[in-house]
Design a protein around this nucleic acid. Structure first.
Length: 445
DNA sequence: CTTAGGG
DNA sequence: CCCTAAG
């Protein structure tokens, strides 16, 4: 049975791809991690991307070129995976904003000064349920999820081949775009193609090979196939989460299952998936998509901000008793807040979807509602701080207020401009005077 | 489907 | 963050 064979092989490949992805890039910034996972599907063709990413992770090569590449790819992925079609209409520059925080030196400085960034990302990748055998990054702890080791019962030679190729790839990061590894991979893909010639599933997979086409026009792939919608309730995931733990412990004879459980391991919020207009990937591939999305969501750039007290409890995640109900809360980063403010000053208060699409397009999380909530909180915070003035700003308030003054000021001004319903229960009678004048863009620093 | 408001 | 009612 060709199909069966194909299924098995592809699931094997999936595991190994993930493995390589994990061990290959010692991500420093969470954003890049996210991008990495988003790129996961196109990895076969975009090994050259690894070079860019790698250089980025070294923190010295923040060149615009790499960012542009990243941005392009990200856009592609974003469009393909999330918003469907319309988001791509010539707004590249705005999308580019999404990567501000990547090349924003201030942010970088912050992350570095925090010092635990690397560790954070490492631990996160662990909690993400990826394979625990990480080569880079110095993560030696073994995960609680022993799923899908490279040797996971490859009963077909293709699996071995794939793994070897991946291994070669990992060993030669310096010259990624050519070489045996690439050839091997494409060979493998061709093999798959031969096996599944004519099958829609294969079509879905092999669309990776046409990465360029996908970038330039995402339409075909979007139209490619429509897939059944995923089960979109959180309790479903919780349920599968429980099941997955059992399955992982017993044994993973089927790679598909183990991979799936790994997805469920961290996951959160199926809603984002549910919103996808047309699932263009096959069952198997949708697993990959699912994985990537969930990883990207489950691997927040939580790092910092707000208050440094809570985010530290990222690893207290697996309380045996506490189970779930752990909110999918993700800390808002300072760049995000800045973007939020920018977006509000651009589009006003009511248009959360616009803000989301143009300023947070690279964030799969952060629904418009989330953005609105954040704005609400920001208003509350700023007005609260505004009370006791700038006198105590150098004191313990500093710990309580990680927001820089400039953003606070901007929030305040915006709060003056746009009357947010009942957030400000204060006076503020003279609002409209200086409001409209500053509407365009504020550069207060 | 998006927004607003409340939990 | 999550849920729900209303446009």
């Amino acid at each position: 049975m060709d199909r069966q064979e194909y299924l098995r092989r592809h699931s094997n490949m999936k595991c190994q791809q993930v493995q390589v992805d994990e061990s290959f890039v010692p991500v420093l910034k969470d954003e890049e991690m996210e991008v990495e996972h988003l790129l996961e599907e196109h990895r076969n063709d975009h090994i050259s991307m690894d070079g860019s990413l790698d250089s980025h992770t070294t923190l010295n090569g923040m060149d615009d070129l790499g960012l542009e590449v990243l941005d392009g790819i990200l856009d592609d992925v974003e469009i393909n995976d999330l918003d469907g079609t319309d988001a791509f209409s010539g707004e590249c520059d705005k999308y580019f904003l999404d990567f501000d925080f990547v090349d924003n030196p201030e942010v970088l400085g912050y992350g570095l000064s925090k010092g635990s960034l690397l560790q954070n990302s490492s631990s996160e990748s662990h909690s993400s349920g990826f394979s625990g055998s990480s080569i880079v990054g110095g993560v030696s702890e073994s995960t609680k999820v022993p799923f899908a080791q490279p040797e996971c019962k490859n009963d077909s030679p293709d699996g071995t081949t794939t793994y070897e190729s991946c291994d070669a790839l990992r060993n030669n990061p310096s010259r990624p775009s050519n070489g045996d590894s690439m050839y091997a991979i494409s060979l493998d893909m061709k093999h798959l193609l031969e096996l599944n010639n004519g099958h829609p599933l294969a079509d879905g997979i092999l669309s990776f090979e046409n990465e360029k086409d996908a970038v330039e026009e995402c339409q075909p792939s979007a139209l490619r196939e429509k897939r059944f919608r995923k089960p979109t309730k959180r309790y479903i995931e919780e349920f599968s989460n429980l099941r997955s733990k059992e399955k992982v412990q017993t044994s993973a004879t089927k790679n598909k299952n183990s991979s799936l459980s790994s997805c469920d391991e961290l996951n959160v919020r199926p809603k984002a998936l549910g919103k996808i207009p047309g699932e263009k990937y096959s069952n198997e591939n949708s697993d990959v998509t699912l994985h990537a999305l969930k990883v990207s969501r489950g691997q927040p750039k939580k790092k910092k901000l707000e208050n440094d007290k809570e985010p530290l409890s990222s690893e207290s995640e697996d309380e045996p008793k506490r189970k779930d109900r752990r909110k999918n809360q993700k800390m808002w980063t300072l760049p995000e807040v800045k973007k939020l403010v920018d977006g509000i000053s651009e589009y006003g208060i009511g248009r959360w979807t616009n803000i989301k699409r143009f300023f947070f397009s690279s964030s799969t999380y952060r629904t418009p509602t989330d953005i609105r909530d954040k704005w609400r909180n920001l208003l509350r915070a700023s007005s609260a701080q505004k009370s006791y003035d700038k006198e105590a700003e150098q004191n313990d308030e500093l710990a309580l207020r990680p927001l820089p003054l400039d953003v606070v000021h901007r929030v305040r001004e915006l709060a003056k401009i746009h009357p947010y319903p009942r957030a400000r229960g204060s006076k503020k009678s003279s609002v409209s005077s200086l409001g409209k004048r500053n509407l365009q863009r504020k550069r207060c620093s």
